[in-house]
């Protein structure tokens, strides 16, 4: 791999990991506060899975440049994170959380399916492994979207509001990183633009079948992963507070 491709891959792996890490964090905020015990358990499964995926991508990065995954997660500042803004948004209500998870799961399913053909074997292997869990996530969140969309007037209204709040943000999942075209050129990662068509078709069909109103005006669409919402700073301040509390600590 050329040094340029390697730098691009390191950036991409970091972005993949940051998405998963921040989404997992938001999902985990529900632990103990879900609408019923069974769903508390269900969402905690998803939070663990996404956190596991973050670790997987970080360990792929570690293999390239030796960076410790915990240092990356707990000692980077907000402006160094490369997550999409959709995942930073506060957890909102159950409709907001389920819809975000659904939109993300659908994107991940397309991305991972394509990435199993990566010319860089560690990416292909990780994608295949993560894909197994994402298939179940998607079944789960797809079912929730359908039920909330077709449940009561209130659940439909809440889900529609969540959709309107997230739609523009979700488009950022398909904005490539600077330099990502090198990786696409070498067949290391799939091209986002192509995946977007499939994603758009799939989510539109399912959301409409669930009783939601689409298409929507695009609204605010973040265009760079170097910029974040105002929520990321405080999310990280909380997440990193213990790890940074003792400068001498080597083991947590």
């Amino acid at each position: 791999m050329s040094p340029k491709a390697q730098a691009a891959l390191i950036a991409k792996l970091t972005a993949l990991a940051d998405d998963e890490l921040i989404l997992s964090h938001r999902d985990s905020e529900w632990t103990g506060h879900g609408p019923i015990l069974e769903e508390d358990i269900a969402l905690a499964n998803i939070a663990q899975d996404e956190l596991g995926h973050a670790s997987t991508w970080l360990s792929l990065r570690q293999a390239l440049d030796g960076t410790d995954p915990d240092r990356l997660a707990f000692f980077r500042d907000a402006e160094e994170f490369r997550c999409a803004q959709l995942l930073e948004l506060p957890k909102g209500d159950w409709a907001f959380t389920m819809l975000r998870q659904y939109l993300f799961d659908r994107y991940e399913l397309h991305w991972l399916s394509a990435a199993t053909a990566s010319t860089y074997p560690p990416v292909a292997e990780a994608a295949a492994k993560i894909l197994r869990e994402e298939r179940f996530h998607l079944q789960h969140t797809q079912a929730w979207v359908e039920r909330l969309g077709q449940g009561t007037e209130e659940s439909n209204r809440r889900l529609q509001a969540a959709l309107e709040g997230q739609w523009g943000y979700a488009q950022q999942l398909f904005v490539p990183l600077p330099g990502e075209e090198i990786l696409v050129g070498e067949g290391i990662v799939p091209e986002l633009r192509r995946l977007k068509e499939d994603w758009l078709e799939n989510v539109t069909r399912h959301l409409q079948a669930s009783g939601l109103k689409l298409p929507l005006p695009p609204g605010y669409q973040p265009h760079s992963r170097e910029h974040h919402t105002e929520h990321l700073w405080s999310l990280l301040a909380e997440m990193q507070s213990v790890a940074r509390w003792d400068a001498e600590a080597r083991i947590w």
């Binding site: 632990t31 956190l51 670790s55 997440m239 507070s241 213990v242 947590w252």
Partner: peptide, 14 residues
């Protein structure tokens, strides 16, 4: 959970 100081501890606590 939101303050666990390592990826491992966070996973275990969830």
């Amino acid at each position: 959970i939101t303050r666990a100081p390592s990826l491992k501890r966070k996973m275990i606590l969830i």
